[in-house]
Nucleic acid binder design. Structure first.
Lengths: 155, 155
DNA sequence: AATGATAATGATAACCAATATCAATAAAGG
DNA sequence: CCTTTATTGATATTGGTTATCATTATCATT
């Protein structure tokens, strides 16, 4: 197992621009609604729900509709630019996907997300395929807890 | 990492009896509705939704209501007798919890669930706590794919 | 076995995230 | 500038889950 390390997030403005050009290069139009959602999510350092993005996005584009938030997120996920997270209550939140599939550390209090590298589960995965006969297509590895700040606040 | 091994499920009738006595010993009453849900889930070899259990349970107890299914599942989970699983679409399914927290192998086609042992993520967990400052309280490790039967059927 | 306090039930309504509908609007290549 | 058509947003709808509440049934006590 390689050394585990936390990953620093790249610059938000650059990322937003990258996402918009990627949308454009795939035949999707760059609209004010999409700009608003992309900017909001690219700047975030926590995972956000569609409702969160709707609230933030309307600060930038007053006419923004909730449905457009969902549709934009759908496209961004399809292009592999963001990752949809599953919360224990069944709702979804979204974060930018830095490089392919990520393993995550989620704060149950403030929503902060840390991404980590260095855990190689491919050998576990292939062992399970051999022993179970399954063809493994996807996996989730997520840790839930309290981040450093929230540990101090929540006693 | 210890040797990974699949786990065989214990006898269904015994398990159902155990669950009912555990409910009783915790001050919960043993009703026909709860019997129906408990029996249905204890016999299952796949994960089931609340609606599934409602359908199966009504074969045993005609008056069974969907709400009682949810309430029974809530109690069983509270007592650590079953485990609630999170599907990518946000819905929930339920399986019997054999021994504490389980790591899972889920068939995306038929719902079959295999439990496996031998993956020790406690060292990964404690390493992440040191490096991130998080206090880790829970985790998910789930693999999704096709079981042996469904691989053959779905080409 | 009968009683009674109260946990549990189930029909119904309510809730909420997510999706479908559809006429009106705006992006972007020509 | 202009036309095509992808996109928008208000609204209605879906589907899983939870809340409400009068009625019923469990089970320790008698």
């Amino acid at each position: 197992m390689a050394h585990t390390q936390l990953v620093a997030k790249p610059d938000a403005a650059k990322r937003a621009g990258d996402w918009l050009s990627k949308l454009h290069s795939h035949g999707y139009r760059v609209t004010k609604s999409r700009r608003a959602v992309v900017d909001a999510l690219a700047e975030a350092d926590t995972s956000l729900t569609a409702a969160d993005l709707y609230g933030i996005g309307r600060g930038r584009h007053k006419r923004l509709g909730l449905v457009s938030v969902y549709r934009t997120l759908e496209k961004l996920e399809e292009l592999g630019l963001i990752q949809r997270l599953h919360r224990p209550d069944g709702c979804h939140t979204y974060i930018s996907a830095m490089e392919g599939h990520q393993h995550l550390l989620l704060c149950q209090s403030c929503g902060r997300v840390e991404v980590f590298h260095g855990d190689d589960i491919s050998d576990l995965s292939s062992r399970l395929e051999r022993e179970s006969g399954f063809e493994i297509r996807d996996h989730w590895l997520q840790f839930f807890g309290l981040c450093e700040k929230c540990r101090k606040i929540d006693t």
